[in-house]
Write a protein that binds this DNA or RNA. Structure first.
Length: 556
RNA sequence: UGGGGCGUAGUAUAAUGGUAGUACACCUGGUUUUGGUCCAGGCAGUUGGGGUUCGAAUCCCUGCGCCCCAGCCA
């Protein structure tokens, strides 16, 4: 708590505190989260959501959820639905009902007429290409449109005819009359309305002219009485235009503040690129557990609180930065370590025969449900002559630092006995079929009365008391640190981002498993894939691995 | 000088002109029936150069580097 408290005062919060003390907005704080419904929300949006809703919460203000749906060509109600679900899931509640920019189309249109009447906007006949050619370059000024000095009367008439649908797509635009030689390209007579004969997901065919972002966004903020309009850095250049429109209209004028968007290594946070992954079927939809979408993280097993904690910890500044993806994973591990019940499961099994045990031997061993939580209680594990352990926990010819089972070596079976490997049974192909061991009856519970120490403790399950399951181990989707920088996104893909184990053996107690996340001891956190599992089939996915210092040593 | 931003350990982020701190990563060691957790310690930083000042990450000057902008996308 104190740790995160220190991190809470970012530069935006400071601005807000200054505004409060100067009573700039009568002490109000009203933010908004304004997604365009053209894709699913991702972890980058989560940061923005946590910022906007968090700032409002912290300052006893409100935050609107507003769909910035001004482009009928890209937007769908499927996305609206998912966005609502995702924001809710993250644990935030917005002010009133969700708002839609499209609900303000009429008002925006009236404001445009007001601007025309003021002589500050004109209908332009130039084509897309002509406008581009006349815009000038970064270093050279642009040229005025031939229609720039059209009379107010003509502009009014033409604009009404645009709205009435008398012109084709792209035939005319409404433009602001600012300055074609302005050093900021956004101020060179920007387009306010374009003609788009397209069906809108909410207004249907009522409109054939649609407002551009710069025009629409400030008005939306103004109409909703927003105080602080928080957006990302690339809109810094648009702020002069945001301010110009609201000032010319003489309407309520919120303050736009820009912050740096979230970047995470080994992942992409671009709706366009994520859509490409979905459309090309490289992933199993927007909610594929490898996707950095909110829905993907949810299916993967991320908790809302771990995402909120992460968002808070990465901070809010104006510098572009790249956050290490392990910080996201760590915030999840930190929570799951405290909450996840432990079980013993073998993902990639190999059989062990305890040769000094009778065939029908059955013995119940006591196991802690969670060593981190003394109130979590105990459960029983069945110990029998035939067991499974993890293939990777045995080596025929182990390196020095391998603490696990090997010929002649003694290890502990968690919550059970010490066992020693005596023999290896192979098939004709030379593959190991079973490992023969003897157990030390005096080491029951995992302690030896003679004080003998063993270095390794292995997880295991009884061969006669298991649940069969399929387990999916996900690795990062990209193996390049900055996949966004790759010329071809697909070149950055990790070919082994999903490994499937079809013959995993789960501890029997999991037959009553709920949808919660369990720790498979020594392996990581796992949960049932609620989308793919059904009664006859168990599919578990690895939510996140445990920290693995052995893997690190082994790599060297 | 087209315009707008940004430069603090490997990464990220703090520090009213007053001891450059924190987290993650990395390295040591301790505890441990999870090579997990936990605990202790270590490594490591103000973009360069000037100036103001008793004192500069912070103020001034001047370099250098990085990001964004020429959609009728948002």
């Amino acid at each position: 708590m104190s740790k995160s408290k220190l991190l809470e005062k970012n530069f935006i919060q400071k601005i807000i505190e200054e505004d409060k003390s100067s009573n700039k907005w009568d002490g109000r704080v009203h933010t908004r989260f304004p997604p365009e419904p053209n894709g699913y929300l991702h972890i980058g949006h989560a940061k923005s959501i946590c910022l906007n809703f968090g700032i409002a919460e912290k300052n006893n203000g409100q935050c609107n959820l507003r769909f910035d749906d001004t482009n009928p060509l890209k937007e769908e109600s499927e996305y609206v639905k998912s966005i609502i679900e995702d924001v809710k899931w993250l644990g935030f509640s917005w002010y009133g009902q969700p708002f839609f920019a499209s609900d303000y189309f009429e008002q925006m249109y009236e404001y445009a007429i007001k601007l025309i009447r003021k002589g500050k906007a004109y209908v332009c006949d130039q084509s897309n290409e002509e406008i581009r050619n006349c815009r000038g370059t970064l270093k050279n000024p642009g040229q005025n449109s031939p229609n720039r000095d059209r009379s107010i009367k003509d502009n009014l008439l033409l604009f009404k005819r645009m709205k009435a649908g008398e012109f084709d797509n792209g035939a005319k635009t409404l433009r602001a009359k600012i300055d074609m030689s302005h050093p900021n390209l956004n101020m060179r007579d920007p387009v306010i309305y374009r003609i788009l004969h397209a069906e809108h997901h909410r207004t249907g065919n009522k409109w054939c002219i649609y407002p551009m972002y710069d025009w629409a966004h400030g008005l939306e903020d103004s109409i909703e009485n927003i105080t602080h309009s928080i957006c990302t850095l690339e809109f810094e250049d648009h702020r002069p235009l945001y301010d110009w429109y609201l000032a010319e209209l003489g309407v309520y004028h919120p303050q736009q503040i820009e912050f740096a968007r979230l970047n995470i290594n080994y992942t992409v946070v671009s709706k366009r690129k994520l859509k490409k992954l979905v459309d090309s079927k490289i992933v199993d939809g927007w909610d594929d557990p490898r996707m950095p979408t909110i829905s993907g993280l949810r299916r993967r097993g991320y908790t809302p609180s771990s995402i909120r904690e992460f968002s808070k910890n990465v901070g809010v500044t104006k510098r572009n930065s790249v956050i290490d993806v392990v910080r996201l994973e760590n915030s999840l591990r930190e929570e799951l370590n405290k909450t996840a019940p432990r079980v013993l499961c073998v993902i990639d099994p190999i059989k062990i025969i305890i040769t000094n045990l009778p065939e029908d031997h059955e013995e119940l061993m006591q196991a802690l449900n969670n060593p981190e939580d003394p109130n979590s209680g105990k459960r029983e594990l069945l110990f029998t002559r035939e067991l499974y352990i993890e293939k990777s926990d045995f080596m025929e010819d182990p390196p020095r630092k391998f603490f696990r089972l090997a010929p002649g070596r003694e290890v502990r079976l968690r919550y059970a006995y010490f066992i020693t490997c005596n023999d290896i049974i192979k098939n004709k192909e030379g593959e190991i079929k079973e490992i023969h061991c003897t157990y030390d009856p005096k080491s029951r519970g995992g302690k030896s009365p003679d004080g003998r120490k063993v270095k390794g403790t292995l997880h295991w399950v009884s061969a006669s008391n298991v649940i069969n399951a399929q387990v999916k181990i996900y690795e990062r989707l990209f193996d390049k640190e900055e996949p966004e920088k790759e010329e071809n996104l697909f070149d950055a893909l990790n070919p082994d981002s999903c490994q499937i184990f079809k013959d995993s053996k789960l501890e029997k107690s999991l037959q009553n498993a709920t949808n919660q996340t369990y720790q498979f001891e020594r392996l990581g956190y796992f949960k049932k894939d609620s989308k793919l599992s059904h009664k006859e089939k168990n599919i578990y996915i690895r939510v996140v691995s445990l920290r693995d210092s052995w893997a690190k040593i082994n790599k060297r």
